[in-house]
Design a protein around this nucleic acid. Structure first.
Length: 465
RNA sequence: GGCGGUGUACCCAAGCGGUCUAAGGGAGAGGUCUGCAAAACCUUUAUUCGGCGGUUCGAAUCCGCCCGCCGCCUCCA
């Protein structure tokens, strides 16, 4: 079975086949590190991680690049306000971003290039565009003349004659020939950071970095470029214009865009003041893995309305999965195989993959796992799950874990000697039918975050949360 | 104004012309099990898919109109 993904360029589902016949090369638009990124941003990054993981699950070697934008107007302004250099200012947020990624189990891309480390290459790209007649200069800034690129608009389908640009053009921009023209190189402004270059002193326009760094690490043509829907226009449209005009080669095969996360039915954004960072959520008691589960459980091309109730629901679902894995893990080796269940596990694997193959339909993939859980739980009750079945099921969930990153069974080890003794003592109390003491101990442990479950086979314990 | 998306039970959500009197998850109610719990299981909560028409032997799924919501067209994941 093959992985089909929705391509914004064609508005169709298409099969992913690496351009070079082997390795999937993927570029993801990363964060601008002028502040903590919010969970709306993380919806996109978690999606990219899911895509990354599933591509690898499908057996493709993957080269994954994610940029970090560490210079732009906001950064320059904020760094100045804070009395810090650009890198001093951005370092801490870049660092925080890496930490948050880890918390959400987002795998680190193979290359994470920083814009400020690629100024030279960006200048080269502008020079190339200038040589080919795609640029013009105004007041020391270099602009891209979109009328020189006939394909302009092919990604976002913008109709250049019918839009509101005219009402929205601000005073700053009317030196441009066409309001849609965009800046490649911004002339130095007094008192602001700049780089010397053959283009004159200044700094790169935003779109430039992604063209430059993606092509540097992935080649002129590569397989996947992804980001949030808001980047379709103008960011990605401009990237296409820059890259294809410079190389005369097709830039990207698949454009993949994830929808927004909304809060109170509005886009989460800093300007709306309705954002939550991951850290905010953790402070409010959310388990980051529940957050990840929630973000993944809704299809990436559908808007997701964030609520704390949603996090709770995700947490419950996750808890159920973890309990299940614990129960399955207790099946003894010697119990004979149940061939029906073997069959069912195979079917589940098929459904799981079929779901994800279909443009990452996570709901369908997850539903398959839940069905298997239900069937298995019934068989567990009547002790009809064999040691082999246990391994098959745990194996399947471990595969699912490679993709979703939230399914591993907890390694249960009692670190605390005192807790171990209390559990022992309670076992003895129950044996002697001293239920008052047994319940007392149970309450005591509950207060310390340990939940006990008495089963036929003995007492099982787990941590809350 | 242009472009795109979306409306399925109390909540989240799959569904891509028949197998839908509609997956899966959460929550609630009743029950089984249990010393009591917890977990698990069983039953239960949409003859119905925003509304109205149409196409079709057949529509949640296609078409038209209407209503609601969201996004992009400006920095933005």
């Amino acid at each position: 079975m093959s992985l089909k993904l929705h391509n914004t360029l064609t508005s169709e589902l298409e099969e992913l086949k690496p351009l070079d016949g082997k390795t999937v090369r993927m570029y993801a638009c990363g964060p601008t590190v002028y502040d903590h990124v919010h969970i709306g941003n993380f919806r996109t990054f978690v999606f990219q991680d899911l895509l990354r993981r599933y591509i690898k699950y499908k057996g493709f070697p993957l080269l994954h690049v994610m940029n970090v934008t560490d210079v732009d107007d906001k950064i320059i302004r904020k760094a100045k306000e804070a009395g810090l250099s650009i890198s001093e200012y951005t370092d801490r947020y870049a660092q925080a971003f890496l930490e948050d990624m880890e918390t959400l189990r987002i795998e680190k891309p193979d290359v994470m290039p920083y814009a400020t480390k690629h100024i030279e290459e960006m200048v080269e790209l502008v020079l190339k565009l200038r040589d080919k007649g795609h640029t013009y200069e105004r007041d020391g800034s270099i602009y891209y003349r979109i009328s020189t690129f006939p394909d302009y608009g092919k990604l976002s389908k913008v109709d250049l004659c019918n839009n509101r640009t005219a009402d929205r053009t601000d005073a700053d921009e009317y030196t441009k020939e066409n309001p849609r023209d965009f800046v490649l190189w911004k002339a130095k402004k007094e008192g602001e950071a700049y780089w010397d270059s053959p283009l004159g002193p200044g700094r790169p326009g935003w779109h430039l970095e992604c063209s430059t760094m993606s092509m540097k690490y992935l080649g002129n043509s590569f397989d996947i470029h992804c980001g949030g829907v808001d980047l379709v226009f103008p960011h990605h449209e401009n990237e296409i214009a820059q890259s294809e005009a410079a190389t005369d080669e097709p830039f990207v095969r698949f454009w993949i865009h994830s929808e927004f996360l909304l809060v109170d039915s509005d886009k989460m954004s800093k300007s709306e003041g309705n954002q939550y960072t991951l850290r905010d959520l953790i402070k409010r008691g959310c388990d980051p893995l529940a957050v990840r589960y929630l973000l993944q459980s809704v299809h990436y091309r559908k808007q997701l309305i964030f609520t704390f109730e949603g996090v709770d629901q995700a947490q419950s679902a996750l808890r159920r999965i973890h309990d299940f894995l614990l129960r399955v893990g207790e099946v003894p080796d010697e119990r004979p195989e149940n061939p029906d269940l073997t069959q069912k596990v195979a079917e589940t694997r098929g459904d799981f993959q079929a779901g994800l193959d279909d443009d990452l339909n996570t709901s369908a993939a997850l539903a398959a796992l839940f069905e298997l859980m239900k069937d298995t739980n019934i068989l567990l009750e009547s002790q009809e799950v064999g040691g082999i079945n246990r391994d098959q099921i745990l194996g399947l969930f471990s595969e699912a874990h490679q993709v979703f990153a939230v399914f591993e069974a907890e390694e249960l080890q009692i670190q605390d000697q005192e807790i171990a003794e209390l559990i022992e003592e309670r076992k003895e109390a129950r044996r002697q039918r001293d239920f008052q003491r047994a319940d007392e101990i149970r309450d005591l442990l509950a207060a310390r975050g340990i939940v006990l479950e008495d089963t036929k086979a003995g007492t099982r314990w787990k941590r809350t949360g």
